[in-house]
Design a protein around this nucleic acid. Structure first.
Length: 501
RNA sequence: GGGCCGGUAGCUCAGUCGGUAGAGCAUAUGCCUUUUAAGCAUAGGGUCGCGGGUUCGAGUCCCGCCCGGCUCACCA
């Protein structure tokens, strides 16, 4: 018999024993007086004498993380919401069936306990138990107490186990929740309304990416999972909603890396009557306040480097190339405007694409501190408004931090004729073989033809922002269930069936 | 998709030159009424990711495959 089968059988026998003692192995509603974090927060600094007079009675519940049995007494740690409290069970302080129950408890079981708080000889705040309840049985063994669960594959596949074994993982996802809440609160306070637009779209657009395809049976219609909500959100600006945002999933059928998951969460917001300059100021405030709300400081330690979200640098794309050019042949401002020079320094077909490619190659490694890069070539930005007096460029910026693109924003193109020409330019790029070039969206052109106010729009990658604010190296560490290949047979159902027979 | 690294007990990991598969934790039994990586004693537990090949003999060498990580390419 394999060990796993043996352990499973032992646990199944425990269920019978627990029932014979009069407890339910899978219990019901439990009324607690305190959560474990509340106890630690409320009484963590109280002395033994303060705890004794008057006594603090509590009723609590949690998962058993450690057990130390010493004959007629013993200790255990219960974990709840990522924090742990020690309990002390002694034979002469609890009903005899409760002590028998304590002797049957396995690591990982969920139990309830009632008693009074005290400090042990070594000073640890603990619960002196006078009553035990049983709430849920674990059939499987917990990962090791000292190292926890380290296997990355298991951590991602069985996130529930990761959250049990590695409490710091809970903190990452609690912070993620606070990030989203902070952004919502800030946007709501500025008069934005949250909206939801289609995730299944007959035409995909708003970004440069390959889509996932799905199918609606009744309509017999192929649909794309959206690569961006942009074109729908701007239709709402045409409709007069004026300030809208959406926090939701986008899907891009591209590679997976430490910075890319096929589905990822974006905040996109659109504000009528502003432009990209206004959005730069707003972005700085949003990021600064989110850092404060989540970490209490704008100084963020990320992978050994301190990032300062109180001071976001700004460079135009061309300035950045001049600033960060490393080595000989440093170009002049004139070189960067010269199609021949650009063509000689890049394999890209157009001067604008060449400039963007040179920028990424030269500058991105230097964009560790939060930085805004503005004024992008028109070829790379089919939905942005031209820079007045400089038609080869558009009013667009990206926010970089830790060498990652965190956000992307621009003054929205609201001239339907120009939008039609941009779409046609994209279609020409598609015909030259660029599969990711934008499609024509005639309804969007129609919407613009009703008149869209001057508008600024922006997208912020929530996953990447969460990475930075939680000091996470991989995007998979901030996504609860990142996409993985299926793992194959698990074998548990067969074992449970045999136990049941 | 390319390159590099990894997969050994439930968990964390050793395993030398190819020669009978190990440790700690966890588990079981016994002792133990303020311990805390509790302690002491004893015991059980393995599809060495999967499939081929070489060899008297493969966890170890070779080939193919599966899964994962990092990285490059592309992107947010």
């Amino acid at each position: 018999m394999s060990l796993e089968t043996e352990l499973l059988k032992q646990r199944a026998q425990r269920i019978d024993q627990i029932q014979k003692l009069g407890y339910e192995p899978y219990g019901r509603r439990f009324e607690f007086t305190h959560t474990i974090p509340a106890i630690l927060h409320g009484y963590g600094s109280k002395s033994a004498a303060e705890l004794a007079d008057p006594p603090v009675r509590v009723r609590l519940c949690g998962r058993v993380e450690t057990i130390r049995r010493m004959g007629k007494a013993g200790f255990a740690h219960l974990m709840q919401r990522g924090e742990r409290l020690q309990i002390y069970v002694r034979k002469d302080a609890v009903p005899s069936s409760d002590f028998e129950l304590y002797q049957l408890v396995d690591l990982g079981d969920i139990i309830g306990a009632e008693g009074y708080l005290f400090r042990t000889r070594t000073g640890e705040l603990s619960l002196h138990v006078e009553k035990l309840d049983f709430l849920s049985k674990t059939l499987l063994t917990m990962p090791e107490k000292w190292h926890g669960l380290e296997d990355v594959e298991t951590r991602y596949r069985q996130r529930y186990l990761d959250l049990i074994a590695n409490p710091e993982v809970q903190e990452v996802f609690r912070k993620r929740s606070r990030i989203v809440a902070s952004l919502r609160r800030q946007l709501d306070a500025r008069g934005f309304i949250e909206v939801e637009t289609p995730m299944m779209q007959p035409l995909y657009g708003g970004a440069i990416a390959r889509p996932f395809v799905t199918h609606h049976n009744t309509l017999d219609l192929d649909l794309y999972l959206r690569i961006a909500p942009e074109l729908y959100l701007k239709r709402l600006i045409v409709g007069g909603l004026e300030r809208v945002y959406e926090i939701n999933r986008n899907f891009r059928n591209e590679g997976i890396s430490t910075q890319h998951n096929p589905e990822f969460t974006m905040l996109e917001f659109y504000q009528a009557y502003t432009d990209y300059r206004g959005l730069m100021d707003l972005s700085e405030e949003l990021l600064r306040q989110t850092a404060l709300d989540v970490n209490g400081t704008t100084l963020i330690e990320y992978q050994g480097t301190q990032l300062d979200f109180d001071h976001i640098r700004r460079f135009s794309m061309r300035e950045a190339i001049l600033e960060f050019w490393n080595g000989a042949d440093k170009p002049s401002a004139g070189n960067l405007a010269d199609p021949d020079w650009l063509g000689r320094h890049s394999t890209k077909l157009t001067p604008g694409e060449a400039l963007a490619e040179i920028f990424e190659r030269v500058c991105e490694p230097h964009l560790v501190q939060p930085t805004i890069i503005y004024d992008y070539p028109v070829e790379t930005s089919p939905l942005s408004k031209n820079k007045s007096g400089d038609p080869e460029f558009v009013e667009r910026f990206e926010i970089y931090a830790a060498r990652m693109e965190l956000g992307n924003a621009y003054t929205e193109l609201n001239d339907p004729q120009e939008q039609r020409r941009r779409f046609e330019m994209q279609i020409a790029m598609r015909e030259r073989g660029d599969e990711e070039a934008h499609q024509m969206d005639e309804d969007y052109v129609r919407a613009l033809s009703y008149g869209m106010p001057p508008t600024g729009g922006e997208g912020i990658g929530i996953d990447r922002l969460t990475m930075i604010l939680t000091n996470s190296r991989s995007i998979r560490d901030v996504i609860l269930f990142p996409l993985l290949r299926p793992e194959g047979p698990i074998g548990l159902v067969e074992q449970l069936r045999e136990l049941d027979a």
